[in-house]
Amino acid sequence: MHLFLEQVSKHYQGRVIFEAVSGRIALHDSFVVTGPNGSGKSTLLKILCGLLRPTSGTVRMEQGGRELKPEERKYRIGFVSPEINLYDRLTALENLAFFTAARGLPVRRSVIVDLLEKLQLKDSLDQPVGQFSSGMKQRMKLACAVLHEPPVLVLDEPGSNLDDRGKQLFENTIRAQRQKGIVVIATNEPGEVEKFGQKVLHLGRAPGGPDQKGPPGGI
């Protein structure tokens, strides 16, 4: 399985966010995107997931030697992002059951409960997600992202709001995912870059200049 970024650029309201970013991500890779605030890390991840259209360039995904259509790609990705929330009014169990059913997968309570147990949320499974602490919410988002066992897991700032135990849970999930597929992480924490940065893509403007074209992103 491969994920290709080919000359991907994004402009927003006449401003260049990044220009001509390319990269190739293969099975068992963990791919880290770094860069200062506003360099477009989150935007790049959204483009990768198919939530946002690039201004130019393409994202391609190959699975089993077959190239997937852009709309197919979307459903093979698990995405954790600060800009995506679950339903506050629904309980943890209801949320996960809903997302399973909406994907057209069979809902098995035992599978969901096991997953919640793994992420240490089992005690709160009948509590509305809106009442969760921010760390619990973050773990809940991870549960929702890996629920359908996607080949690609994309994490935007996964370490935020997590205590050490939570970080450990994330780390375990990331390692497990690498065994099965691909992990893409956007982070600025040096520790995380070091730990997972098998391949690192640095996004950012050319230092010291107003030149917004930015350096060509590369690995």
């Binding site: 979307k74 459903y75 800009e83 995506i84 929330n85 679950l86 339903y87």
Partner: peptide, 16 residues
């Protein structure tokens, strides 16, 4: 408003 729309986008087809 609640930012649940992107989660929905990743889970179900627009027609649905």
């Amino acid at each position: 408003e609640k930012n649940t729309a992107p989660a929905l986008r990743l889970a179900a087809e627009p027609e649905l």
